[in-house]
């Protein structure tokens, strides 16, 4: 009767757990937490760069997952991408609400910045290859800006400061980069 699943779970398994969570199935929710909280905690830590705050954010993320799991059924995302989107959006909203920018980027790198290991890249497979190839078509600093913004949730203001360019220049750069990225991915 109980759901007994041994790791590693397939995306279909995670999808089932999310849908069951939307029906307020606590056993499914507990298993979903066990299977995915380490990745989502990694997201919160990376963006917030503060352990206590990341722990609080992770709590809020899973409260959202419990209350909003029904949204997954109507989204077109893979289950892990959906969960990561919930966590990233929450962590980024939180860091934007905070007055000062993230304290120290080097410290953030020390806390949690493994380049994607060969395992992670292998799992992501061809899709990941494609986006990395497309990023390589951009100028190095623009590709770095896209990666930094995605992983750390940096704002236009922070990116402009770090790259020492005016804010509007950074906006133009990034918008053009995003359009070129889309074109490359759709080729």
């Amino acid at each position: 009767m109980a759901i007994i699943v041994l790791a590693p779970m397939t995306p279909e398994d995670i999808a089932t757990l999310i849908v069951r969570t939307s029906l307020k199935d606590r056993a499914a929710f507990d298993l979903l937490y066990r299977q995915t909280s380490a990745k989502l905690f990694g997201v919160c830590l990376r963006v917030l760069n503060d352990r206590a705050e990341a722990e609080e954010a992770l709590q809020e993320v899973f409260v959202k997952v419990w209350t909003k799991a029904d949204r997954f059924a109507v989204s077109e995302l893979s289950p892990m991408s959906w969960l990561i989107a919930v966590a990233r959006n929450h962590a980024i909203d939180r860091i934007r609400a905070r007055r000062r920018p993230a304290a120290d980027i080097d410290a953030a790198l020390d806390v949690a910045d493994p380049a994607p290991g060969p395992e992670a890249l292998a799992v992501a497979g061809g899709e990941a290859d494609r986006i990395h190839r497309c990023l390589e078509e951009l100028e190095q600093d623009r590709a770095d800006a896209v990666r930094g913004a995605y992983l750390k949730g940096e704002s236009y203001v922070e990116l402009a400061e770090r790259h020492a360019v005016p804010l509007n220049t950074m906006r133009t750069w990034l918008r053009r980069s995003l359009i070129r990225l889309r074109e490359c991915l759709e080729r």
């Binding site: 409260v63 949690a112 990225l181 991915l185």
Partner: peptide
Amino acid sequence: VDAWEGRLSPLAAGYAEVEAPPSVKAAI
């Protein structure tokens, strides 16, 4: 928005998995 989440999602491989302390699940 979903389409962009999908396009950029491979970048999430750059997030490490970090075990959260048990107190977090208890608090949830």
